[in-house]
Nucleic acid binder design. Structure first.
Lengths: 129, 129
DNA sequence: ATGTTATTGATAATTATTATCATTAAAGGT
DNA sequence: ACCTTTAATGATAATAATTATCAATAACAT
């Protein structure tokens, strides 16, 4: 017996997968509370860590200092708007050529590649930023 | 009068630029203390923030939860070894094609692109990981 | 040289995350 | 279905990371 499927863990995973906003732990915790107000914050922290280890969710790298999470583990990139600070998914960014270049110029064994774009999103552009 | 060049700020910048290890704030603070033991930790925090804003140093995105800093602001990528957890620089990773792909498939205005590779470094490979 | 005020060092306060621990409840065996 | 085991929970304390406060200092424009 190694790991157990708890109601809390399933709620955390389901809540994160439903959110498309790439929440922080605290934002996720708030959303979880709406489904079950008895779930503790530590439980959210614990389950998020476990789910990352299990590869069911992933951390999103950002420069804002706070860790964001993504319930979609398919390989994709992210875009952060420097104006509204929202995170967006970007599918179809192919990193194979980057990996090839690194393999040629170094002796590192690459297992993962993360890409983050920063800039201004469409909505903020329209608001004349 | 907007900003001043202080001895402390110059030491922080110089120390970071000399280190090639991409230190955390705490590691940088330790190194700064060797040059001037009277500099306070808060001063390091403050100056690191300012230097990032000024574009003289940059944050390095990692998945280890701690923020690392790089005194080299030229556009380059990073590699983190999942075994020894060291960060390495990777020059010559060209992201122009990625940016083009995003421009075609979205309406985001991209100002920055960050790439992190994860895997095993050469030394750790030799140690039979 | 002097006055203004941004910056500093020390420390308190805040925020984020992890550890502790008694209690609860999954999951396997009977 | 009922024990038994023990991983996981909820509440909270403890720790770590970062920011705010404030009197004293020191850049730098004049």
């Amino acid at each position: 017996m190694n790991t157990r499927n708890t109601r809390q863990k399933e709620i955390v995973l389901k809540t994160l997968c439903e959110l498309k906003t790439h929440p922080t732990i605290l934002e996720l915790y708030q959303a979880v509370l709406h489904k079950d107000a008895s779930i503790g914050q530590a439980t959210v922290y614990r389950n998020v860590s476990k789910l990352v280890e299990e590869g069911k969710i992933q951390k999103v790298l950002t420069k804002d200092g706070v860790t964001h999470y993504d319930g979609d583990c398919r390989n994709h990139s992210h875009f952060m708007c420097n104006s509204c600070h929202r995170l967006f998914d970007l599918y179809g960014v192919n990193t194979n050529n980057l990996i090839k270049a690194v393999r040629k110029s170094s002796c590192f064994i690459i297992s993962n590649t993360y890409v983050l774009f920063e800039g201004i999103c469409e909505e903020c552009m329209d608001k004349c930023y």
